[in-house]
Design a protein around this nucleic acid. Structure first.
Length: 261
DNA sequence: TAGTCTGTTAGACA
DNA sequence: CTGTCTAACAGACT
């Protein structure tokens, strides 16, 4: 899915859009709903406008007698549309004057429904690490295993919440860390700098991307809001050296070979 | 054409 | 338990 910043943008958008109970619900792809049954989902969507929340990359809709959890994985998103079944629509609910539509081209996203307080025991949330804005250098040092690559450790949602593959490239560039840095390479000052930069990074990206519909890099490269991610061969914004790309922990990392060594 | 790549993460493996 | 790899899906790209 989008990373934390994109989920937060969807959350804010839904607070403005979803101000009444849904008047109609269309579940267009049964496999989207991986927990709970369609009737309960319909019941919640049509009951009241929910309290919107977010934890890490999970979007939460809280109701008096249950909750819905949305996870977008790689390509999911929720948009406000004029019609219920635009391309890749998986679930739509009507909140006049439009439709809220869960779109997902790759169908990896998921929706889960919980009755009453069952969400309180939902494991991904109960084991998730702290939000970026709650980090301190000390907390990071304690939570990141010394035996791991820094990239692996940061992307593990049980270490800290919200960091994905894009954020890793951007954070490493901002902090001038080599892409294959190990947690054990960091000293206390590095942990402090990282703890300060992670929330700043997400604040920056939320500001840059805040829009009615998030545009992902893969859909529109001209709108790439990142400094190094997706910019292989382009100039480093700091020193002009060509940005390189390398697979670290199985996924592409973008970095400046000059600044980050 | 065939192989590679993509924003996540659960589950399999060593 | 811990760390690492890959499948799940549907394209787009080389």
């Amino acid at each position: 899915m989008p990373e934390l910043a994109e989920v937060e943008i969807v959350r804010r958008n839904l607070e403005g859009w979803w101000t009444e109970p849904a008047s109609e619900v269309r579940l267009l792809d049964d496999e989207l709903l991986v927990r709970g049954d369609p009737q309960t989902l319909r019941g919640l969507l049509t009951s009241q406008p929910p309290e919107m929340g977010r934890r890490g990359k999970y979007l939460l809709a809280g109701f008096d007698d249950g909750a819905i959890v949305f996870h977008f994985r790689m390509t999911g998103k929720i948009v406000l549309a004029h019609q219920p079944e635009p391309d890749y629509a998986r679930l739509s609910w009507r909140v006049d004057p439009g439709w809220l539509v869960f779109k997902d081209r790759r169908r990896l996203g998921r929706v889960e429904v919980f009755e009453d307080d069952a969400i309180d025991d939902y494991e991904p949330l109960t084991t998730m690490g702290p939000e970026p804005w709650d980090l301190t250098g000390e907390l990071l040092r304690d939570r990141l295993s010394q035996r791991r690559r820094l990239k692996d450790a940061l992307m593990d949602q049980s270490s800290i919440a919200g960091v994905g593959n894009i954020a890793v490239s951007e954070l490493f560039w901002r902090l001038k860390l080599p892409p294959d840095a190990q947690v054990s390479d960091l000293d206390d000052d590095d942990f402090e700098a990282l703890a300060a930069e992670i929330p700043t990074y997400f604040d920056d990206i939320i500001d840059r991307e805040m829009a009615d519909e998030v545009t992902y890099v893969e859909e529109d490269s001209s709108a790439n809001p990142f400094d190094v991610y997706g910019r292989e061969g382009g100039p480093c914004p700091r020193c002009g050296t060509e940005i390189a790309r390398e697979k670290i922990a199985g996924r592409s990392s973008y970095f400046c070979p000059q600044c980050q060594s």
